[in-house]
Amino acid sequence: MTDATATKPAAQPKTPLLELRGVSKSFGAVRALTDVDFEVGPGEVVALVGDNGAGKSTLIKAISGIQPGDRYTARFEGNDVNLNTPQDATSLGIATVYQDLALADNLDVVENLFLGSEISGPGGELGLLDETRMEHKALDLLSQLAVTTIRNVRTEVGSLSGGQRQSVSIARSLLGEPKIVMLDEPTAALGVAQTRQVLDLITRLRERGLGVVVISHNLADVFEVADRIIVLRLGQRVATFDRETSTPDQVVAAITGASSNGQKGGQR
């Protein structure tokens, strides 16, 4: 069976920020997730890996509340919580960067960063936008994240490169001051230099003490940024690795199921 406390590396959180037990999710006859445990601590990067259809995106969606699990228990900072709606997750401080970027190409960087949470004067929908403060905060945020590749925050997002757009998406998820950021395949379709930017950004999120969950198919990237690697296969959590004490080959074996039992033993 799945072993949630498989590893005892230094990176294992003392009290996990978020802890899920027994997440199950079915789509009709398809059991996308079976009794999956999951945990992420502050200042920790957890990589979620597995073959296509293993259930990675489904797990992220269960946590973010857009497709809640059929059965689960969740604890956030030690308290029992619900993750049944996107609002539940957002109010706890869980932000998600989806694989298909949710940016409006015709708006500039500042406008995209604050979309839906604009700073404005009184008057509700007709409240006057405070462009000065938004631009100031945007510059602030980007410089904290050391995003130097975006020179003009009034550039339309449509004219940015993939890496720059991904940076905007990630920065956007940080505006609500979340405690956990989840990224679904943030480096897919990016070139070498742009992947670099995104990985650096993930490292910076960890330095800020955030819990980070990353889905990736690229094990080189995973081994570069992750503290712990959780392997899903056919909707089950089959292994957990500590980056320091494991090799990509071991992870590949767990993903493909070649020797998942051996791996689990080895990790204990």
């Binding site: 409006a104 708006l107 406008e111 839906g116 929908e125």
Partner: peptide, 17 residues
């Protein structure tokens, strides 16, 4: 205004909005 910004957002990418 916010409403105006939302109009442009819906026109640019309704799903993002």
């Amino acid at each position: 205004t916010r409403f105006g910004r939302h109009m442009y957002a819906v026109g640019g990418n309704a799903e993002a909005a």
